[in-house]
Write a protein that binds this DNA or RNA. Sequence first.
RNA 1: GGACGGUUAGCUCAGUUGGUUAGAGCUACUGGUUUACACCCAGUGGGUCGUAGGUUCGAGUCCUACACCGUCUACCA
Length: 885
Amino acid sequence: MVLMEKTYSPEDIEKKWNKYWQEAHCFEAKHNGKPTFTLFMPPPNVTGILHMGHMLNDVIQDVLCRWARIQGKDVLWIPGTDHAGIATQNKVEKVLKKEGLFRQKLGRKAFIERVQEWVKEHKHIIGDQMKSLGVSCDWNHSTYTLDPNYSRGVLTAFVKLYERGYIYKGKRLVNWCPVSQTALSDEEVIMKQTSAFLYTFRYAVVEKPGTFINIATTRPETIMGDVALAVHPQDTRYQTLIGLHAQCPFDASRVIPIIADEVVDREFGTGALKITPAHDPIDFDVGQRHHLPFIEVLDERGIVNAHGAPFEGMDRLQARKAVIEALREKNLLVEEKPYDHAVGYSERADVPIEPRLSEQWFVRYPKVEEAKQVAEKFFVKFWPQRWIKTYLHWLENIQDWCISRQLWWGHRIPVWYHKADKSIIHVSVDGPQDPENWEQDPDVMDTWFSSWLWPLGTLNWLDNKPETKQFFNDFFPANTLVSGPDILFFWITRMIIASLEFLDDRPLEQRIPFKNIYLTGIVRDSIGRKMSKSLGNSPDPLDLIKKFGADGVRVGLLSIAPQGQDIRFDERFLIQGRNFCTKLWNACRFRQMQGDIIPYRNLNDILNKIEHFGHLSIYDTHLLSILLKTMADYEKFLEKYEFSAAIKLLQQCFKNIFCDWYLEIQKHQTHTCLAVQDLFLTQMLTMLEPYAPYISEELYAQLHLNDCIIQESGWNINLLKQWAQAHKSYTENEIETIEQLRNLVSELRALKSKHGLASDKNVTMAVVLETKGKYTEYFHQHTELIKKLVGLKQIDEETKPKEGMPKTVTLWGTFFLVIDQTSTQDDTDAIKREIELLTKHIQSAEQKLANERFMSHAPEAVIVGVKKLLEDNIQKRDALKKLIM
RNA sequence: GGACGGUUAGCUCAGUUGGUUAGAGCUACUGGUUUACACCCAGUGGGUCGUAGGUUCGAGUCCUACACCGUCUACCA
């Protein structure tokens, strides 16, 4: 056998295992009658690249899947990609622009082909990136939202909802993106706090020459679309003006009525409002209530149209300035003051959206009440739980969903208009029998209208083949959905609604798409900013993997991913992750150096070998006790999605107990049972595998700890518990004794270190043991080991301590450093301070015990604890006092 | 404006139903290559738990108010 290298080099090992996993079909879902465990990976944009957020999500999901496999479940993890309508179309249009082309010139068919080409080129990128992270999803089930089957599901959903009366077409004011030139849903609009100006100008009142009415607005460029002025009906300032008319500033022929409406806020601005129903949601309502005309002055690009003369042809921002100048010239501008308010921006194009009157398709959400119920009854659980409030709040205030997009890339709306009479429409998945007489709606659907079917579509919900149906029933619903909270409404809530609606032949609790929702935090940079392209503060995940290894990245990332809190990312953590991998590697290398590596066939082989060895030392049983406790805690943490707590637990157990304590002891033992190390390592590597799969599998294989890989090894906590109990090697007493021994060793090392003798092994200590203490016996049992671990030539009770020797007082007794040069002064001061502190503690404990109310109220255990502490402190103080007398 | 988080050591964070003297990792400082590992080991230092009240025998933990940071949501044009 070749000795392992000193340092773990991830690259080759990652390659090796990726190849193995793929060739051995390790992650392909099969239902073998065991409990199933399903995960739907949130599909990234098909032409996107992996960012830090994906990485965190994917690693968390991978931990869940790998852990489920170890527990023996039948796991299905479905990956896939999203066609991402606007994002992808924008990208290709940018490319076209460079070629001097635009989509209209190309035509619909040619353009879509161009996009498909682009998708084909880029599709594999994000998948490859995920593979290098080590994700264990089933690529056979990989789904793309434009796959034929999936698309059929999307169209079917539209048709079903239409037939059930949940989809309608309406002319409404929608969020319009002038760059993408499409309508957007409310969720795709981001409100940004913006510094702007609030302009006040005056309208002349026609019936009362010389009288003016002041109006405040942030959007003067829509003045040409004004159709009325509105004041509050009870506003005393304007009573005499209601019913009169105002003169439009830029069109002498146009006068508009002054109306009263309760929507007007008397406190804001001048208390008078200009009404532009075609360009403002509130004005739209007022316009409808008062049967006012709708005048559009901006076109689909946000440019002033013919109705906006004399500003026709100007961009909306340009027009704003021009209008202000013109008003100033006409002496109508009264005031111009800075004003901060929130403005809606297009999520994709990052420009202010324009409320625009247009005809669109809308969804009235079905099953809203049921969606609330499944959360309230905990059929669906949120982690962290507080998100349920946000979820319910959104459902309470749910608005109809605008699903049509004026794009070409996506699922086309399955509606046809008769050429002879446009009012005759046909709605179906396959279209009319006589297509030549019909014209299909040009719009496509919001991408989220396909994403919300993800749990159904990836499992081919419409396929009636018995095996497909069986597969669906076996693996639906998913156990957990892992996602960032930013798409709670976009996606998660809608998936729940879709499943509730389309699986309506099932009882409510079986219609949910997933039982748990785990919402991750947002990955931020080290100073708390969101990671973004424009800030350039987002590292490339692939670079990080190259630098620290996939396992190092995974361990580092998850160790700072507490449940649902934002994460401050810093490479420091990945360094720690990588260092941990190296440590792990070297501990196994050390095991290899100790020799005697015989392939085990299973866990029982290891246990038999231990039994064959005969008597285990207290250090062995202590290690195994800690191991069992760690395994139990690990289970609990993962059950509660406490990923960072679980990995920190493993790191602590492995480094502090196994490496720095147990292995160091082994170096001083003559007769050691290597199978104990093997037992520890099998279980430790098993627990680490979900976090660090490559290195864990590699070491497991190198040490021949089993005849299968970890993923197939099973979780043996119950077997081990029984075994430990049968061999009486699990007792709290042992843990307690050894922990005290560890403390003692620390204190003695500190004593040496304080006097500059940290590494000097030619040191003698004298000890006066605590005669009443139970540790006297322990001391005699462990003397040799203490000598070696502390680095002493001698430690005994024969050597008589002399005045001025440096010393430390412990529960075991008082230990003296036998050296010539003394530092009495320093020591005395330190001891005095120590006595002072102890006295404080003693007084506080005595007060407590003298307090009748404490004695009558506090539980017995607390009182006993205080008494014990009091005793210990008094003992220690008395010993210290003797020293300085 | 509303809802929800957060505030504990220089930094990043643990701290379960109130219960003994508040923990970890990193950083800093000191010392160190002995059967693996300097991507290591040993040791030291560092906190009146955001502020002010309250409940309690006892509060980092529960209650009230305030301050600051953050997220979401609705925006008064």
